[in-house]
Design a protein around this nucleic acid. Structure first.
Lengths: 218, 218
DNA sequence: GGTTGAGCTGAGCGGGCGCTTAGGACCTCT
DNA sequence: AGAGGTCCTAAGCGCCCGCTCAGCTCAACC
């Protein structure tokens, strides 16, 4: 690997969606796998299909990944880490609980809508991971749950929110956001930003926050 | 078929979950398929597995169903018809819009939680149906959506609800209920009735209905 | 009591699956 | 020029898939 390539890799990691995956061939395979898994599901996708989409022979896949399942694991882990980062950023942000909850829902939904192919794989193909890989993913989900619960609890403590069942409401909020990946369609009438704004408003109503002026929407 | 068997069939159709599926062997195969599809997904389930769970040889499946996909289609259609029936019953019921919306959410969620194996197949394996079978299912879903939208629109008209975006809120309400099938676990801490009551309350908040006394919960 | 037909099984076909292996093209460094 | 290493392909192995088919059993009818 040359100096130039190393620089290119580092830039890619910072700017591109799957930039952390190198070398280039491994990333192309992974992007192809995301598309195929999202369209047809993990089990219905063949390694020949993935390799074909990446413009390679079936055998090339096994130079970069040990098995087909390792591809799913890498997709799932990167995706869950991104989801957790989005929620933690909102939970650690400025403003009162309502601001933070609205920002969490807005950005989380925006990601699920804007990257709905990735999100579909991340959220719905978890059961396809074997028992030896699943625990690390479940742990990431637990921390995502904790981030949202933290915001809601702080809102209840400050008196901003009226929430009789905090764990149940946390579950419902996350569930609502996650399901966006199932129904969102690029050809549909709503942009990811619009869905994010709508959902942020709905969630604030769910927690009994005082109505607030609509934020400027792009 | 004897007179007694015909009576037994009719009673079964009225009382049992999959009673409308006859003869008995076809129902056992279908129930086995529901379990297998819910656990592992349609594509990961083999016809040998289905037949094995039903205590039959692999070839027996093809006496009652033309293909593996026909099994999925029958499960999906019966499930969607049941879901639509639940929502229509609530939409056509007594009471004001808030009563009807709460009842719709409560019973719809109760069904998704209580029959979460069936619901998982019905709601998440739709893409596994080929293009020739999917339209009839999509039409049933359209009518479910219309039932919920109808209730919300009537609440807006009567001034009970405050809903800026009726189609978007309809989508969110259905999405919230449907996703119960993904996360609900029989070993979890909540009963289907409890989840139904919690979700009915959350949805009434989403549509800006006046707070109302909690209904008696079993 | 012989015939029929429905329901089922054992054996297996054709094919596509995940994955492996041997070897070749191309680059870098000596 | 040659060696060594990386990345890829062509071919194919062993397996299991969805599905078929000849033949068995047995209750229901003439």
């Amino acid at each position: 690997m040359t100096q130039d390539e190393r620089v290119a890799d580092r830039q890619a990691a910072e700017e591109m969606p799957w930039g952390e995956v190198t070398p280039d061939a491994a990333r192309r395979l992974l992007v192809a796998a995301v598309e195929a898994f999202a369209e047809r599901g993990y089990h219905a996708t063949t390694t020949r299909d993935i390799a074909g989409r990446a413009g390679m022979s079936p055998a090339a896949l096994y130079i970069h990944y040990k098995t087909k399942e390792e591809l799913l694991l890498r997709i799932s882990r990167i995706g869950h880490e991104k989801a957790l980062e989005i929620l933690r950023h909102a939970a650690d942000g400025e403003g009162d609980a309502a601001d933070r909850l609205a920002e969490a829902v807005r950005s989380f939904v925006r990601w699920h809508a804007g990257h709905h192919t990735t999100a579909r794989v991340v959220q719905y193909e978890l059961d396809s991971l074997g028992a030896e890989h699943r625990p690390q993913i479940v742990e990431l989900r637990r921390r995502s749950d904790a981030a949202v619960r933290e915001i809601i609890e702080s809102g209840v403590r400050s008196g901003e929110f009226d929430v009789p069942d905090v764990p149940g409401t946390t579950l419902a909020v996350l569930s609502l956001c996650i399901d966006v990946a199932r129904w969102f369609n690029t050809e549909g009438r709503r942009t990811p930003d619009e869905v994010g704004a709508l959902y942020a408003d709905l969630v604030l109503r769910m927690v009994g926050a005082e109505p607030r002026p609509a934020v400027a929407q792009k």
